[in-house]
């Protein structure tokens, strides 16, 4: 792996959540992301999986500095993004873009497709001529599989898949080096998902993009990622190369996730064993002591309640945070 484009170290994002109080509000910290570290190289995709409330979307936004970071560092080619002022950060934004889950909600309903795609260009290259912008937009549209003739249409006139292509074009037009994909295919129809996944992979190949691919769908993550990180209540449970993780998951949570994914094959689906986990997701305001997963874990013992498991190496590039991963 080449030198990292992005190096995230011990990143923490805590929100202050109001918890009653009579005259003055009491605040409790919600640790949405709590000490996450990873590297990302150019041309590499890191898949981030976890269930709702695990902090995966917060992590993506914190990396892009769209949310205030509580502690830790996000280094972009060695320079810490959290230390930049507004102006420097704006300049950096050319290199880092985001693609959202809801294709329609991420497009301004009052703007045409062309204006939406051109907006980043207008923000960064205010001197550019109208004709040059138009040419750039048309070329981008062709690349993401939209017909240039659709440039004057409005978002509501497109299907979900086409809207997502507009969102991808907007993210790609400045030629970014990193794209955070926040559940980019979850809201799409099954027959459209594969199209968008292929498009993202083609773009990555063509431009050497680094991608953070956030999803709850393990099948999709396995298909698109080079490395995969599993989050639970804001903490890393396991991180490994794609094949290592899917062949030999070490963490009970990863195992539970994988065996819970339904397989579109009636025989395999009915015969497959499952790692059962507890029903209740603990409140993120009051996470369990020690290992956060212990309340649902089939392997939990006393040590899990007392000691926070550190990330241990379980093979080359494979780290797992569990006291019992060797069992």
């Amino acid at each position: 792996m080449s030198a990292p484009l992005l190096a995230v170290r011990d990143l923490k994002v805590h929100f202050q959540v109001r918890s009653g109080g009579l005259l003055f509000a009491d605040y409790v910290p919600l640790k949405a992301v709590d000490g996450v570290s990873f590297d990302l190289a150019a041309g590499e995709t890191l898949g981030i999986v976890g269930e709702s409330g695990c902090g995966k979307s917060t992590l993506g936004r914190a990396v892009l500095q769209l949310l205030p970071v509580t502690a830790g560092s996000v280094a972009w080619l060695g320079g810490d993004l959290t230390a930049l002022d507004k102006k420097e950060l704006k300049a950096r934004r050319q290199d880092m873009q985001i693609i959202f889950q809801d294709p329609l909600a991420s497009l301004d309903p009052r703007m045409t497709a062309g204006d939406i795609i051109a907006e980043p260009v207008r923000n960064f290259h205010s001197g550019m001529s109208g004709a040059a912008i138009k040419a750039g937009v048309q070329e981008m549209m062709a690349q993401v599989g939209l017909l240039p003739g659709m440039v004057n249409r409005y978002p509501h006139e497109f299907s979900g898949g086409q809207c997502q292509r507009i969102g991808i074009a907007r993210a790609m037009i400045l030629g970014p080096k990193l794209v955070v994909c926040d559940e980019p295919v979850s809201a799409l129809d099954v027959s459209i998902r594969a199209q968008v996944i292929n498009l993202l992979m083609d773009l990555q190949q063509a431009y050497g993009l680094a991608m953070l691919f956030i999803s709850h769908d393990l099948s999709v993550v396995r298909h698109i990622s080079h490395r995969v990180m599993v989050l639970y209540l804001g903490r890393v449970m396991e991180i490994a190369d794609r094949d290592a993780l899917f062949k030999a998951a070490r963490h009970p949570y990863t195992q539970a996730l994988m065996t819970a994914v339904p397989i579109p094959d009636p025989d395999k689906e009915r015969a497959k064993p499952r790692v059962a986990v507890g029903v209740d997701l603990p409140s993120p305001l009051n996470p369990p002591s020690g290992c956060v997963f212990r309340t649902r874990c089939p392997k939990a013992t006393q040590v899990c309640a007392d000691v926070v498991p550190p990330l241990e190496s379980a093979g080359p590039g494979h780290e797992v945070a569990c006291h019992h991963w060797r069992d």
Binding site: A194, N198, S219, I263
Partner: peptide, 15 residues
């Protein structure tokens, strides 16, 4: 066109 966990991961999905 459905990516699945039981297949070998292929380069491109059928669409």
């Amino acid at each position: 066109c459905t990516p699945r966990l039981d297949d070998p991961a292929t380069a491109t999905l059928v669409t």
